[in-house]
Nucleic acid binder design. Sequence first.
RNA 1: GGUGCCAUAGCUCAGUUGGUAGAGCAACGGACUGAAAAUCCGUGUGUCCCUGGUUCAAUUCCAGGUGGCACCA
Length: 300
Amino acid sequence: MQKKLIVIVGPTGIGKTDIAIAVAKHLKTEIISADSRQIFRELQIGTATPNSQQLHTVKHHLIKNHSIQEYYNASMYELEALNELSNIYQTNSIAVMSGGSMLYVDAVCKGIDDLPSVDLKIRNEITCRFETEGINNLRFELKKIDPDYYATVDLKNHKRIIHALEVYYQSGKTYSSFMTKPKKQREFDIIKIGLNTNREILHQRINQRVDQMIDDGLIDEARSVYQYKTLNSLNTVGYRELFDHFDGNISLETAIELIKRNTRRYARRQITWFNKDQSITWFEPKNVSEIISFIEQRIQ
RNA sequence: GGUGCCAUAGCUCAGUUGGUAGAGCAACGGACUGAAAAUCCGUGUGUCCCUGGUUCAAUUCCAGGUGGCACCA
């Protein structure tokens, strides 16, 4: 029988964790998290990592398995997730994946091209040039090196320009030359479930969840990782706003308001991304039995 | 009960010497293949409280009403 992967996506705060647990429990299988911040064991309250009782109910993978001090990216996630999946498929024909990290979900479902991994030294050099010279020189250089990518890239987005250049300096080959591979074939069927509800309710849920995080000790958690605040892993909603407060730039009240706002905006970007994916079937998170019967139907 | 002030975007407010209006924040739309909870681009969304009056024309002026605030009783 063909292996199946049930993928549960949706904006932050919509209730993916609960649905994933209900579905996995029903199917007697395990969950692979697709969350770029729940990966880090030092971040739990602020990333709404499933609690110990939830983790006990259904086995979760790729949660709390890295440190904020480690470099991590979507490609590493792709490898780890495929590896966990093949483990699950040894004994089970169905697995559940749940998470809101859009690129991570796509890395597993659609695959991403194999690019050379870039030395930190090269990245630092180019980032440094961006900071001192500005973006124009880098753009000009990219135009010469890789006109194909230059023609399609967002020229105002420095991260894209920097990345294309660092790939070139790392490998001697252009960024666009790595983009030509056909879509990766997966050995499993993918069934995608999207969770969403009306915007007002989603915002209410987000605001309440942030207040709850503060009650649960987010401030102490943020303080405990404050010394690492420049790491990418801590360029994360819920932490950077509190760091700003610790630095004396904003009041605690303002920090909390900003966490709520930035979470809402993050949710909106997720919705934009997932809305484009025609293979998603959408549900209200409260309709658990409807979701399960839809899945039952699709896995026959 | 009387007097005064106010009523414009989701919020705080500006403005129109009468020609249907604009800032900040919020919000909304979009892009995105190794930093993705990142990064980047775009968009005013409006019964100018209601009803009459004056006027070619009223959100603006006048009257009344309603609501809010303040003070006096």
